[in-house]
Simulated assay, not measured.
Amino acid sequence: MAIAKAERLMNLALCLLGTRRPLTKRELRASIEAYVEAFGTGDGGTGSDDSFNRMFERDKDDLRELGLVIETVEGLDGETGYLARRDSNRLPPITLDAAEAAALGLAAKIWQQARLAGAASGALQKLRAAGMPFEDDGSFEAQQPHSALEPRIPAHEAAFEPLMLACRDRRPVVFDYRKSNAARPEQRQVEPWILECWRGHWYLAGWDRGRQAERVFRLSRITGKVRSRQGKFTAEVPDHVTVRETVESWAGETATGTARIRLRADHGYPLRARALSIRELGGGWDELEIPYGHGLDAWLVEFGPDVVVLEPAELRADVVDRLRAVAKG
């Protein structure tokens, strides 16, 4: 649902829930800013009135589909009135067991962005008001072991929030993207499907319109702003998107052999974590044996001068080619 429409529906729902008497369409049109901006207060002519009536009827139907009980009252000086009584729209009692409440408390701590953190905090405040036994720090008081956990999912890239909203609203986007072996970024037109975090980095999966194929993008390689585009998706969104499997193949996770590399001492900890063996060479270098699979060259390039490939020869050649491509830029 687009943000503008969601805000309009929320304002309409608040008006209907907050009134003590039925409100006519004319009163609602003059009270809700989105209606005023689009159609004026009622003196815009027949065309404007017809457009407002169609939008209002759609909005009213959408709220009813979302579960809001809206009553219609006839005979208000010849007009029809609308209201949503609070007693007809109360939520049933919320009951969570200890594990569910603990999971919510932990989830509220995950996001570091202020926008998301505020929403999570507000949700917990509402649950506390409803009687859920959360502690002040957001944990469930019966689950003391969880109080020591401080989970974090970092999302420092500027592209994260606009892409998150685009995935939610099913809106195509355009952004400049620099591949690991490219000297300059290229513009990509993408229908975004899903965001996933893997080993501290965020990735976007979606349909690349220019290449007419599914692609996965690392957010840290997006340069400039993410711009939204009008229109619907042209490709069907799959039921299951294999973001992690794709990224693992890039990083050599689906290994078919082994490789030997020299790694500068006290550097490349992700490589050390996957190493099959590590041998000190002296002079500030170590020798590592690591799993070798498709895409390992792209991962090794990211470590720059801290890594030297010893074997196999084809991996060394691929890494050198990638570094030369970047150096040419």
Rank of each mutant, 00 (worst) to 15 (best):
residue 157 E to L: 04
residue 326 V to L: 15
residue 195 L to G: 12
residue 72 T to V: 14
residue 158 A to T: 14
residue 161 E to W: 04
residue 141 E to Q: 03
residue 103 A to M: 15
residue 172 P to H: 05
residue 314 E to C: 00
residue 51 S to R: 10
residue 93 P to M: 09
residue 70 I to H: 08
residue 121 S to M: 09
residue 164 M to H: 15
residue 3 I to V: 14
residue 319 V to W: 00
residue 151 P to S: 02
residue 134 F to S: 06
residue 79 E to K: 10
residue 39 F to G: 04
residue 286 D to Q: 13
residue 317 A to D: 04
residue 17 L to R: 13
residue 65 E to C: 10
residue 274 R to W: 02
residue 193 W to N: 11
residue 329 G to W: 04
residue 25 K to F: 02
residue 46 T to A: 12
residue 48 S to Q: 12
residue 42 G to E: 11
residue 237 V to F: 02
residue 52 F to R: 12
residue 262 R to W: 07
residue 178 R to H: 03
residue 193 W to F: 13
residue 296 L to H: 08
residue 7 E to K: 02
residue 106 L to D: 07
residue 290 I to R: 05
residue 179 K to F: 03
residue 13 A to V: 00
residue 302 E to T: 11
residue 201 H to W: 05
residue 127 L to I: 10
residue 63 L to V: 08
residue 29 R to H: 07
residue 297 D to Y: 02
residue 68 L to F: 04
residue 69 V to A: 15
residue 169 D to N: 09
residue 192 P to Q: 13
residue 120 A to I: 07
residue 319 V to N: 00
residue 242 T to R: 06
residue 221 R to E: 11
residue 285 W to R: 05
residue 216 V to G: 07
residue 316 R to D: 01
residue 198 W to H: 15
residue 60 K to F: 09
residue 204 L to N: 01
residue 102 A to F: 00
residue 183 A to Y: 07
residue 9 L to Q: 08
residue 193 W to A: 06
residue 278 I to M: 03
residue 172 P to Y: 04
residue 151 P to W: 02
residue 123 A to P: 00
residue 85 R to H: 12
residue 147 S to Q: 15
residue 63 L to Q: 11
residue 153 I to N: 12
residue 49 D to S: 12
residue 207 W to H: 10
residue 324 R to N: 13
residue 131 G to S: 14
residue 204 L to I: 05
residue 131 G to T: 13
residue 192 P to C: 13
residue 94 I to K: 06
residue 223 T to L: 13
residue 140 F to E: 06
residue 272 R to K: 10
residue 165 L to C: 12
residue 177 Y to K: 05
residue 10 M to C: 02
residue 273 A to W: 03
residue 158 A to I: 10
residue 288 L to T: 08
residue 42 G to N: 11
residue 251 A to D: 03
residue 304 G to F: 14
residue 198 W to E: 09
residue 209 R to E: 09
residue 248 E to V: 03
residue 144 Q to D: 11
residue 240 H to R: 12
residue 165 L to R: 14
